[in-house]
Structures are given as C-alpha cells and as structure tokens.
C-alpha cells in the first residue's frame, strides 16, 4: 500500500486459515468513496460530495480567483463532477484529488482572465514548527517536504501554490531570476512528490 493511504481507517475482513490458525489473514474492505459513488451514479453521493468539499473548493476559489470566486467555484465543481470517475484511491486521497481538480480549473480560469496579484481577505492556518506529526495523509507528507526545502524554495513554492502568484510575479517580489524561481518551484514539487510516492522521480531536478 503506498504511503498515500496512511491514516485511512480501513475495516478489515478477516478469514481464518484452513489449518492450525496462528495468524488471521486480513484483507482490507474499503467502502467506495463519495467520488466513486458519484461516478457510479449513487443518488445520495452528489449531496455528500457538495457538503463535504464545498468549503475546500470555496476556499480555493476565494484565494485563486477572488474577483469571481462564485462563478469559479461553480466551474470547479462541474469539473470535479466530470472527473469523478478518474479518482483512484490508491494514488491519492480524495481531498487531494478534489483539490487537484479544483486548482487546475481555477488556475486555467485565472489565466484566461489575465491574472492579477491576489488581494482577497484570507483566513488560513499554518502548522508552526513540527506540523507533520499532527497532519494526515498527503498534507502531512507535503508539510514535511516543505520543511526540507531551503528558505528560498519554501517561499517560492508557497507564493506560487498558496498565493497563486505567477512565476514572473514571484521573481519581481523576491528579486530572484525567473529561471531560479522556476527551478525552486519545480524542485520543491518534485521533492513533495518523491515523498508522496516513496520513490525518487527521475529527471527534472536540475
């Protein structure tokens, strides 16, 4: 099971071996997630999906498309509905998948409308010093990965991912060359992905 499944509360179906039972054989029984149920046409799932992820999608929309957050959030949910069948719980947790689909749609939308520096009021929490032990799943791994980056890399990744600033804007704000900003962001994301996958990605670290 990849590291992504850490923290998931699986139920186990246990079957006793035929001869002299010493250790029970346990196979996880993972109930379908809300996105899997949406994809399969479960009538109650769309309500649960909207209830469960409206806050996440709304927060992303407020942050990445503050001037048109309502329309952007609606766009993101439509994209999520269309992409529900792509969700694979062995690759990522559902919340990470939702954030990925929503972010991609919101970034495309902001780009198509000539993005501007973000200025919406925010209220977001940051773990302080030892965040990884208190977070779960990919977010915990990502927090650890961020802590391993250099201060410049951390700043570039946070401004880019969290603030939604373009690489050019980050270069202007930090005084770093554009190429360096791009490298910091790429290396930072690759490092996060390495930890998420538990492997070393090839290439792209230069």
């Amino acid at each position: 099971m990849p590291a992504l499944a850490k923290g998931r509360k699986d139920k186990y179906h246990c079957r006793r071996p035929r001869r002299r039972a010493v250790v029970r054989e346990c196979q996880p029984i993972v109930p379908p997630t809300v996105l899997q149920r949406v994809a399969s046409g479960d009538q109650a799932a769309m309500r649960e999906c909207l209830d469960q992820y409206s806050g996440l999608v709304w927060s992303l929309a407020r942050r990445l498309c503050p001037a048109e957050a309502e329309d952007a959030a609606q766009d993101a949910f439509i994209a999520l509905w269309k992409s529900a069948a792509r969700f694979d719980p062995s690759v990522a947790s559902e919340s990470t998948f939702v954030a990925m689909i929503a972010r991609r749609r919101l970034i495309d939308r902001a780009r198509s409308r000539a993005r501007a520096p973000q200025s919406a009021a925010l209220s977001e929490a940051l773990p302080a010093e030892t965040p990884a032990d208190d977070l779960r799943d990919e977010a915990a791994i990502a927090a650890r990965a961020i802590n391993q980056l250099s201060p410049d890399q951390q700043r570039a990744v946070k401004l880019s991912v969290y603030r939604g600033l373009s690489h050019e804007q980050i270069a202007q704000a930090t005084g770093l060359p554009l190429g360096t900003v791009k490298t910091h962001i790429r290396r930072g994301l690759i490092r996060v992905r390495e930890l998420l996958e538990g492997t070393t990605l090839q290439g792209g670290a230069a």
Binding site: V57, M100, L189, L196
Partner: peptide, 28 residues
C-alpha cells in the same frame, strides 16, 4: 504527479475551509 504535489502542498499550508455561502451552494 506535479498537480497532486501542488494540491498536497496547498492542503498542508491551508486549513479551516471557509463555509460556502448557502445561495452559491444552491446555485451549484
């Protein structure tokens, strides 16, 4: 791969999702 990494970073930094306005939820 990179989109998932960015999403995980976003979730690691951000917290406490703000409730979506009820009217917007209804519109969606």
């Amino acid at each position: 791969s990179m989109d998932l990494a960015a999403a995980a970073v976003d979730l690691a930094i951000a917290a406490g999702a703000e409730p979506m306005p009820a009217l917007l939820k209804s519109r969606i």
